[in-house]
Simulated assay, not measured.
Amino acid sequence: MRSIWKGSIAFGLVNVPIKVYAATETHDVSLHQVHDEDKGRIRYKRVCEFGHEVEYADIQRAYDDGEKTVVLTADDFKQLPEEQSHEIEVLEFVPVEQVDPMMFEKSYYLEPDSRSPKAYVLLRETLAKTDRLAIVQFTLRQKTRLGVLRVNDDVILLQGLLWGDEVRAADFKGLDTSVKVSANELKMSSSLVDSMSTDFDPDRYTDAYQEELQQLIDAKLASGDDVDTAETFGERDEDDDEGEGGDVIDLMAALRASVDKKRTGGSGSRSRSGSRSATHDSTADDAPAEQTPASKRTSTAKTSTTKTKASTSGTTTKKEPAKRAPAKKAPAKKAPAKKRAS
């Protein structure tokens, strides 16, 4: 497997360096369209309604409300709080049963990316012992996303979550109809369930359609029923984002400081995107030590004093006294551009 990107888990004042991998993949046979007459590959061109073929670089996005269309340029998007952080921020811990599986999206494996994986193991063991999920916020493809951290065997798993307003309510009139189920019917139904009950083993189930489709393709190839066409798919390079992580120097001190901060009510309010008054910035290594640039998020909460954050290399720092921000801040040093998730 090749990593999608590397970053860190912000766990209180402890940073856990990690690499992110896609945990799932499709087994569907890849097919494309061809012209029935000459077997030429069908390709799609970007053509506007006025008949002009358009280069990808000349395409802009627009919103249509049904009557009017608003065109959004690249400069317009630069004004938005575009998220590019590779930090997975832990917001809170909740009981496992309180997160409905309906909200789960794609899953990712998190690998420790440090010469000393102690912080990773500590977080993994804590999640397992407390039987809780860590609600986190992370950024993927320029969008702020909600997710959970949970333990899968010996690996911490990141699973994306739908936002609350993305889950539709089941409002069906048929559910309002009064139906009486007899005791005998319920008993027989329960007996059937008992007779079919077993432990779940996903390896017992196979996709018969895809297997037979592959057999059909292999048979056609073996019989010579094929055409000589040019290669239709090129190999795409994936971003390995290799790098070395650092050691966790003073894990207990960072944990103790995190607990003290929570007890004294140090955490600020969060908006829907999960932003907090004390922000984390993935470019802290390149920013001045005394001032961390405020995260560009949609939260309207008042800006509070920034704090020195733990190094993304895995080291931890003690909380410093808050300093009043000067009237005019010197522009922060721009962080090097980072590759985004593919």
Results as ranks from 00 to 15, higher is better:
5 W>T: 02
6 K>H: 06
8 S>R: 07
8 S>W: 11
9 I>R: 12
9 I>F: 03
10 A>C: 14
10 A>H: 04
12 G>Q: 03
13 L>N: 10
13 L>D: 11
14 V>Q: 01
14 V>E: 07
15 N>Y: 06
15 N>R: 08
15 N>G: 15
15 N>L: 12
15 N>E: 15
15 N>W: 08
17 P>H: 00
17 P>A: 02
18 I>C: 03
19 K>W: 05
20 V>E: 05
20 V>A: 03
23 A>L: 04
24 T>Q: 05
25 E>I: 00
25 E>V: 00
26 T>E: 08
27 H>C: 04
28 D>Q: 07
29 V>M: 11
29 V>D: 11
29 V>T: 15
30 S>T: 05
30 S>R: 14
31 L>K: 09
31 L>I: 08
33 Q>A: 12
34 V>L: 08
34 V>W: 01
34 V>K: 02
34 V>G: 00
35 H>M: 06
35 H>I: 09
37 E>T: 10
38 D>C: 11
38 D>E: 06
41 R>N: 12
42 I>A: 12
45 K>H: 09
45 K>F: 09
45 K>T: 07
46 R>F: 06
46 R>W: 00
47 V>P: 02
49 E>Q: 00
50 F>N: 13
50 F>H: 10
50 F>V: 12
50 F>C: 08
51 G>T: 00
51 G>H: 04
51 G>P: 09
51 G>D: 00
52 H>I: 05
52 H>G: 06
52 H>N: 06
52 H>L: 02
54 V>H: 02
54 V>P: 00
54 V>Q: 04
54 V>L: 09
54 V>A: 00
55 E>C: 01
55 E>Q: 12
55 E>M: 01
55 E>Y: 01
57 A>K: 14
57 A>P: 10
57 A>G: 14
57 A>T: 13
57 A>Q: 11
58 D>P: 01
61 R>I: 08
61 R>F: 00
62 A>E: 09
62 A>T: 08
63 Y>G: 03
64 D>K: 10
64 D>V: 07
65 D>C: 04
65 D>M: 06
66 G>A: 07
67 E>D: 13
67 E>R: 13
70 V>T: 12
70 V>H: 14
71 V>I: 15
71 V>N: 13
71 V>A: 05
72 L>N: 11
73 T>F: 05
74 A>F: 02
75 D>W: 00
75 D>T: 09
76 D>M: 12
76 D>C: 04
76 D>R: 08
76 D>A: 12
80 L>Y: 06
81 P>A: 01
81 P>K: 08
81 P>N: 07
82 E>F: 03
82 E>Q: 15
82 E>P: 06
82 E>L: 15
83 E>N: 14
83 E>G: 11
84 Q>S: 12
84 Q>N: 14
85 S>V: 04
85 S>C: 00
86 H>P: 11
87 E>P: 03
88 I>F: 04
88 I>M: 04
88 I>L: 14
88 I>A: 09
89 E>G: 01
89 E>R: 10
89 E>P: 03
90 V>L: 14
91 L>Q: 13
92 E>A: 15
92 E>S: 15
93 F>P: 03
94 V>P: 02
94 V>Q: 01
94 V>N: 09
96 V>I: 15
96 V>T: 10
97 E>I: 15
97 E>W: 15
98 Q>C: 11
98 Q>N: 05
100 D>I: 06
101 P>C: 15
101 P>H: 12
